[in-house]
Design a protein around this nucleic acid. Sequence first.
DNA 1: TCCGAGTGCTAGCAGTGCTAGGAACGAGAA
DNA 2: TTCTCGTTCCTAGCACTGCTAGCACTCGGA
Lengths: 183, 183
Amino acid sequence: MSIQKRRERERAEREQLIITTARELAEAEGWEAVTTRRLAERVEYSQPVLYSHFKGKDAIMTAVALEGFAELAEELRAAPATLAGVARAYTDYAERCPALYDAMFRRHVDLPFATPQAPPALWASFDVLTEAVRPHARGEDLGLLTETFWAALHGLVTLTLGGRLPRDQHDRRLALLVARFET
Amino acid sequence: MSIQKRRERERAEREQLIITTARELAEAEGWEAVTTRRLAERVEYSQPVLYSHFKGKDAIMTAVALEGFAELAEELRAAPATLAGVARAYTDYAERCPALYDAMFRRHVDLPFATPQAPPALWASFDVLTEAVRPHARGEDLGLLTETFWAALHGLVTLTLGGRLPRDQHDRRLALLVARFET
DNA sequence: TCCGAGTGCTAGCAGTGCTAGGAACGAGAA
DNA sequence: TTCTCGTTCCTAGCACTGCTAGCACTCGGA
């Protein structure tokens, strides 16, 4: 049965290759440029192969987003466990991987959010954020306060990435936001 | 020269019809459903007519967004001139016209933001927001603080509309945000 | 009555996501 | 070794997208 094992392994490797390639392509040229044809060409397989791994293009994006959740959680855990530290790590990550951030938090993906069924990696990120917010919750519901702070970070990130807010003052805006949530 | 005037008027009316129809279609089924063919069919003209009014589909979306800016400014002006009042009016508008909000603040439109060249209607909204924030600026840069508050509102709105935050607690999150920016 | 500008149509291009069908390969049986 | 059967993967094609070239027609002005 070793042959079958090898096949399963090769198949898993190919699936990972598709995800990684999709991510690279999106990061380089945006998700609009990630077409099934271009993606298939890059992984050096024909188009229908993609559909033997994923239900469709959306499912590929979802897989990429899941990778992003795990990475983001790592970044947040590595950051100083303060409100400012975690906030900075969050926006830095979004700035560094805008297409990934797009897939995770802007595009429509078929994943549960804000429920116990949400991906564990997403919960991990949220937990780090929660711990950073905790010291500053003055009797407020900690979960809701964290959601609110997260939303504020998200707004800052998306408006800046989308060119609605000038990038050069981003640091000062982030500082203002953090200050308002401290204490 | 009256004939020419009539033609110009009819042309302007048709242009408005295209904008209104695009808006209705987007609000009813989302922007993905707004294809040039469906839009042309609804306004009862052939597809190429759209291109005699607008450079492309994006330009139609931009025209719709501009309408939205004007409407939003009106709504904000009509709201109680407090931080809570304006914030509530902002999120209410987004909730009521999600597709319009999408075109205005989420999709890529070819408009200048956060510069003096930005659409006047957009500045009008921002000015109302600024006045609501002013009493709570404790020595901070008022423009930057307003941008930050706006970003936070935007984050709340987009995460909620995108299904990333449960709608039912929206009011409480909004109250938390406003409380953090008061004083 | 005729002309010419200009308007709006039909038809088509290149590209999209996705799928049906068959060809080719390779593992196991005879 | 040869045959058979499954699986794997590709070619070809569908229905759609945004957009445009080019022709037919209309209609005001002479």
